[in-house]
Nucleic acid binder design. Structure first.
Length: 580
RNA sequence: GCGCCUGUAGCUCAGUUGGAUAGAGCAUCAGACUACGAAUCUGAGGGUCAGAGGUUCGAAUCCUCUCAGGCGCACCA
């Protein structure tokens, strides 16, 4: 029985024991923590709160828990105000390994999210721009969370909502009409290259913003472009279609490298045909009013109004987001709608949710902005507009090249080095990105992002390589690997114990990840497990052991580690090589 | 100016929602391959948890103030 269930069971037994309306199993489970050292036990219950409710000193309570719960496969030691619970290691071993060997690739999953429907919006790049390092956070956080929710039985919708409309695009259009080279975006020409097209678009986009500083009239030209688009003028529309198609193809290619797929590709443009209807609805229901020639909605509690229509009559991102949210509600009736978008857009989402609420949409309470910190470049933020950006493709290439170099150094005879380098390089980027709290800002540094040593993706992958190598050798020798039935006489080493304990915790980790919408819990867990395994591996002989029972048991632990690490990496969208 | 966020070892970050002696990785130094893969493992040094008050059995965590940095504040997304 994995840790998650053991903890619940114990908490409800303790609640039953006290039999008081003020002591609830759930609260006990939440209070229980991990003792500072393994020797103290597996689970620590601080008795301070119980002391208040029961009006008894906390150390007395710890002692009474000890007397009542010791035996029955568990040892309880009172340590001052703490009751430290330690399951019989054999019991922990049997239940955990049983579960891993039964559920295999599904180990860690459950159906706690059954009948719940979640909509995720993430990645959401702008058309005509290559994916930059900033997009990686939204994409990876969203992808991992959606994977975890799926694994726990939720039904998920993964929407990539591309910015294919609005002033931003109009500016590109204006830039293209001034400096654009049409032959570069003509997909029918024999020499067409999507990469060259994207590079060209990026170049003129940056140029446009630079020129705007000296020629403000360019902005007027852009405004006209947007009007032409919203009026479906043929020339503008044709160019829009071309650029959109090229961008999406380029984007898919990059996402594919990180094993990321969506089940909905939508764009702001989707909502343009019906946008007048949305505007009318907002004006009527949310009490929009005219201010300085533009239409605004005043959201209670916010000093900045929601701007839904500009004075030139065109719409904004916010307007299209309103239409999109209504559409998603109608299509999916989700229990939650998560927007995985940078912290900087916090106000935007407050305005969006506030406006939806004013429109009478009670479901606006189900919407949540899952924000993340800014990517900094030195002390400046990354900005495509100013040309200060690292493109995702370049980053992945760089990571792969470095991994290849490392691989060649360490394992020159490896046959599929290129493939391995790709898994390791991309893995390092994915893992590294999810290795800190999503809300903290991160500073872009090549040596940090490309690290292959220490608490990194390759560390976890390397642990898996060790597992695989051992299991292959065992297979060749005809060794048995599995769950040893009777371990009552077996003396578990501390390294075995902490490995078992770590193996048991995958599901409780995933529940933490869902509770906080925080993928970090998972990466941290995988490091913890890999570390427990590497210590076990270093200290204890597996195939070298003279005792056949011990060999079988340890091989079983290796296989269980392989399954658990693999499941975890897959949730992150990472692949693991068999050799590296 | 107003609002939000952040400040923990030289660097990058954890700290299980208020609990035990504040922990990891990198870097530095010292060790472990005639052992199942050394992309590994073991150990050492390194801390006024930005600062000052407060709340209580107990604070890195909660409250107040100060300092430093970041982000946002209607016709961008």
């Amino acid at each position: 029985m994995p840790f998650f269930d053991l903890k619940r069971k114990l908490a409800s037994e303790i609640a039953d024991y006290f039999n008081s309306p003020d002591i609830k199993a759930e609260a006990l489970a939440a209070d229980a923590g991990v003792p500072p050292q393994l020797a103290l036990g597996h689970l620590a219950l601080p008795c301070f709160k119980l002391s208040k409710v029961l009006k008894q000193p906390s150390d007395m309570i710890a002692k009474s828990l000890t007397e009542h719960f010791s035996g029955k496969g568990i040892t309880v030691t009172p340590t001052g105000p703490y009751a430290n619970f330690k399951w019989d290691v054999g019991y922990l071993y049997s239940t955990t390994l049983e579960s891993i060997f039964t559920k295999k690739a599904r180990y860690g999953s459950d159906d706690s999210g059954k009948n719940k429907h979640i909509v995720f919006e993430y990645c959401s790049p702008n058309v005509a721009k290559k994916l930059g390092f900033q997009h990686i956070r939204s994409t990876l956080i969203g992808n991992t969370l959606a994977n975890v929710y799926d694994f726990l039985g939720y039904q998920t919708e993964r929407i990539n909502f591309v910015g294919d409309w609005g002033s931003q695009f109009a500016r590109l259009l204006a830039a293209f009409e001034t400096w654009g080279r049409p032959e570069l975006v003509d997909t029918t020409l024999p020499g067409f290259s999507a990469k060259a097209a994207m590079d060209h678009l990026f170049e003129i986009y940056v140029k446009f913003h630079k020129e705007c500083d000296v020629h403000p009239e360019y902005l007027e030209q852009a405004s006209k472009c947007l009007q032409r688009l919203e009026e479906h003028e043929a020339r503008a529309t044709d160019l829009w279609k071309k650029i959109r198609k090229i961008s999406i193809a380029a984007m898919d290619e990059t996402l594919e490298r990180m094993n990321i797929r969506f089940n909905h590709l939508e764009g702001e443009s989707t909502y343009i045909p019906e946008i007048q209807k949305t505007l009318k609805e907002v004006k009527e229901k949310a009490g929009a009013k005219l201010s300085e020639g533009a239409w605004i909605v005043e959201v209670p509690g916010l000093t900045t109004p929601a701007l839904v229509q500009k004075k030139d009559g065109t719409t904004l991102y916010l307007t299209r987001d309103i239409a999109a949210a209504e559409d998603r509600e109608k299509r999916f009736h989700p229990d939650k709608m998560f927007y995985v978008v940078a912290e900087q857009q916090k106000l935007h989402f407050q305005l969006l949710f506030g406006t939806l609420k004013l429109m009478g949409h009670e479901w606006a309470d189900n919407c949540e902005h899952v924000s993340f910190g800014t990517v900094l470049f030195g002390t400046e933020k990354m900005s495509t507009r100013e040309g200060r950006v690292i493109f995702l493709d370049e980053l992945l290439d760089e990571a792969k090249a470095l991994a290849l170099e490392e691989c060649t150094k360490k394992n020159p005879d490896l046959p599929n080095k290129d493939e391995v380098a790709d898994m390791v390089g991309v893995g390092a980027i994915i893992f590294g990105n999810l290795s800190s709290h999503r809300k903290s800002d991160i500073e872009f540094k090549w040596e940090t992002v490309l690290a292959l040593d220490g608490e990194t993706g390759p560390y976890v992958q390397y642990s898996l390589v060790r597992c695989h190598s051992l299991l292959e050798k065992a297979k060749a020798k005809g060794e048995k690997s599995g769950v040893v039935k009777d371990v009552s006489q077996y003396a578990f080493a501390p390294e075995e114990e902490s490995l078992i304990l770590s193996l048991a915790k995958l599901r409780s980790t995933l529940h933490l990840a869902v509770r906080d919408n925080e993928p970090y819990h998972l990466t941290y867990y995988l490091i913890d497990l890999a570390k427990a395994f590497n210590r076990f591996y270093y200290k204890l002989p597996v195939l070298q052991s003279n005792d056949p029972t011990q060999r079988e048991l340890r091989l079983g632990l290796v296989e269980a580690t392989q399954t658990t690490l693999t499941n975890g990496l897959e949730l992150l969208g990472m692949r693991a090589p068999k050799e590296m």
